[in-house]
Amino acid sequence: MSILINDDTRVLVQGFTGSQATLHSEQALAYGTNIVGGVTPGKGGQIHLDRPVFDTVKEAMEEVNPNAALIFVPAPFCKDSILEAAESGIELIICITEGVPTLDMLTVKKRVDELGATLVGPNCPGIITPGSGKMGIMPASIHMPGSIGIISRSGTLTYEAVKQTTDLGLGQSSCVGIGGDPIPGSSFIDILQLFQNDDQTEAIVMVGEIGGSAEEEAAEYIKDNVTKPVISYIAGQTAPAGKRMGHAGAIIAGGKGTAEDKIKTLKACGVHIAENLVDIGSKVAEVLGR
């Protein structure tokens, strides 16, 4: 199997007719993803990319029965779109949009948790299960079906890890970009748990970065709950304190959240560390004895 996305995933794209949504939906369809329709308020009844467009998620639920939502709406409307999906009974919600206000996410996250839905993002590249389907903006061509589960806070950095595991013939079970925002829908721990329980996944690559304490919390979780080997790379070893490095979450504040501290904690919890970005793949191969 894989995690979150498989052959039974029926995708609804919110903000379907926008340019980014159109581009990435075309690529997802070409990859074989089962997109069953989309939502753009005011454009209900139209056909876009050979799929029906609805005004509301509720109508889409009745007509095409999606179980996953992929959100491309502009940042000011993400709170509304995520809540609409969750309240309508969508189980998996992936929000690609960047720039969502943090306080919107505070309330959204609480409600999504109450409703029992899984939210990934915002400000993330999405999820791909190679050979099965993709919900996101990643280039499909660098992936291959395989046994490595990849979790990352960053987009292109994920691609780097993916490429390296593909080049070594290991391939990926699923790749999940959880996003670089301070309040992500899913944490490293949420995804680690899924990979631990997934038969196809032999080893897990966790790509972290400076800021916050998500990697440290993940390290503690791994120590007690994850029996599969975890290989980690932490970006931002050279970043100065107090400067925000692009991602809203990537800032070293008050001496906390440094790469050095994270690496130390991860090592102490039995996680294998790739010291250099270019060595992620080879570290995985080494740990698996290949």
């Binding site: 950095l157 780097e160 670089g180 970065e209 400076i210 490095m245 991602h247 990537a250 790469a259 970005l277």
Partner: peptide, 26 residues
């Protein structure tokens, strides 16, 4: 973000940009 070294970096993506800086340092 301006830093103290002498290798100018241009990268797509914040995570990869940090990773590239680290690799230079490495």
């Amino acid at each position: 973000v301006s830093l103290d070294g002498n290798i100018g970096c241009m990268v797509n993506g914040a995570g990869l940009a940090m990773g590239t800086m680290d690799t230079i340092k490495f």
